[in-house]
Each structure stands twice: as C-alpha cells, then as structure tokens.
C-alpha cells in the first residue's frame, strides 16, 4: 500500500515540475512588434465585406502597389466580388494591354485585356522585378493575407509601420526602417502616406484609412469565397446544433427502456 503511493507522489511532482517549466514561456528574441488587432468588416463568423472599402482598396492597388506587385491568381472578372458592375470591369480590363498569343505569321500579339484576363503584372519575370527593386523581390499579393502570421493586422502594420530608424541602428543599403517587419529593415519604400490617392467618394485619404482599405481588398483577393463560406457556415452550424439536440432527445428516448 505504502510503496505505490510514494511512487505516485514522486512522479506527480516530476510532472508538475515539467508542466511548470513548460508554462514558464521563455522570452522570445523579440524585437519586432506583435501585429495590433484592427477592426475589420470581415472579422468574426458574421463578418461581411465592406464593399466600398474594398473598392477603394482596389483603387490603391491599381494606382500604387501594382507598379511593383503582381496578383497573378486574380482575373478582372473577380472584381464582381467587390461589387463592380460588368461594364466597370470591362472598362478596367480594357485599360491594360496584355499578350494575346500569336498571329498567323507567328508574331506575338498584344491587345486590351478582357474580364477573363489575368491581372496585368508589372514585370515579365522575377529577375526583372528584382532588377527594378534594388535586388529585392516584391511578392505576389494574391494570397499575401493568408501567407503571413497575423494576416490583415500584420499587413496593416507593415503599411503603417514606417518610421525613422533608431539612431544606433545601422541600416542596409536602400533599406527602410519598419516597426512591423521582422528585423525592422524592409526593402519596400514606404508605399502609402496621407493623401497618396484621391478618393472619389469623399472618404478622408489618411494613411490609416488607405492602409485599411487596401488590406480589405487584399483580404478579399486572398479569400474570394469568404462571404459565401461564412453565410453557408452559419446555416450549417445552426442546423448541426439543432440536429445534435434532436438526436440527443431521440437517444434518451431509445435508451429509456433500458433502465
């Protein structure tokens, strides 16, 4: 009787020490800020998409970011997801010239893009993109929101995180100081500041508004299915919760005769 009990005490103590050690989270080699949670139209299971913000965000992408960043997974037709009409989409597409295969002489042809065309990319290949950007490669932005820890909050943090470097910091050639970026040195020049774009709907064009809008657009671009997914999810989860209740009641009924 005695011995096993002592064994247990010893082992339980061991486990407690182990657990305590695991919970005492050692300080990480932190120098980069944690993304600060912003308020988004699309957060939570009932979140939707602020279409006006997404449209303003597309304007910013088109006027600024698309000078360096591609969005290869998107087609112009996808813009219907942020509420643009067919005519608007046709007009936007037509303003870009894209390769259109070859003619009957085998010569490459170019022409205006269609709604079914991929978004026009700023550079023909990664080498050209690097050459134009001081050796740094601007990543494709199609799924960037899903490809970074912290998602929309992190991207917002990057766009609003530019500042003067601390005096003791040695900056690399052509590098900018950014509070959010890991290591604090980013090769992207500050893309947005107050007044970078002119909004047609009277929204103030402050830096934080612009960053908010472009991130809303990028979130749509990474999750075009999001609205449908959540709407479907609410119905399905409600249905399943109801089914759980019904099934449980039936189970009680069936089992009642056993006792």
């Amino acid at each position: 009787m005695r011995r096993p009990l002592r064994l247990r005490t010893v082992l339980l103590h061991g486990a407690a020490v182990l657990l305590a050690a695991a919970l005492a989270h050692p300080a990480p080699a932190a120098e980069t800020a944690e993304p600060v949670a912003q308020s988004w139209s699309f957060s939570g299971p009932f979140g939707g998409l602020d279409l006006a913000a997404a449209q303003r965000g597309f304007q910013i992408y088109k006027e600024i970011c698309s000078n360096c960043h591609s969005m290869n997974q998107l087609y112009y037709r996808n813009l219907s997801g942020i509420g643009l009409s067919e005519d608007q989409i046709k007009a936007i597409a037509a303003s870009f010239t894209v390769p259109k295969g070859v003619d009957d002489q085998g010569q490459p042809v170019e022409g205006p893009a269609l709604p079914s065309s991929h978004f026009h990319a700023p550079f023909p290949n990664p080498e050209a993109a690097r050459a134009a950007n001081n050796g740094a490669l601007p990543p494709d932005l199609s799924v960037i929101v899903k490809a970074r820890e912290g998602g929309p909050d992190y991207i917002y943090g990057i766009l609003t995180g530019y500042a003067d470097p601390p005096p003791d910091m040695k900056m690399g050639d052509g590098m900018m100081y950014n509070k959010q970026y890991p290591g604090n040195q980013i090769a992207m020049p500050q893309p947005l500041q107050d007044g970078s774009v002119t909004y047609t709907d009277g929204t103030p064009n402050t830096l934080s508004q612009e960053a908010h809008d472009v991130v809303t657009f990028l979130t749509f671009a990474a999750n075009p299915e999001m609205i449908e997914r959540k709407r479907m999810g609410v119905r399905i989860v409600l249905f399943l919760v109801m089914m759980t209740g019904v099934t449980y009641v039936v189970k009680r009924k069936i089992w009642a005769d056993l006792h």
Partner: peptide
C-alpha cells in the same frame, strides 16, 4: 442497433459541428 447507432449519431453531430466551425469560420 438501435442503442449504439443512435448514441454514435449524437457523437457524429457534435463532431460535425466542430468540423464545420473549423471549415467555415
């Protein structure tokens, strides 16, 4: 059947609920 088919069905509904919350949200 029917005792454990119905009891497994209760579990299945809970399991599908958790699964759906992950997939959709």
């Amino acid at each position: 059947h029917p005792y454990y088919t119905i009891k497994d069905s209760v579990g299945m509904c809970v399991y599908l609920t958790v699964f759906a919350i992950l997939v959709f949200f």
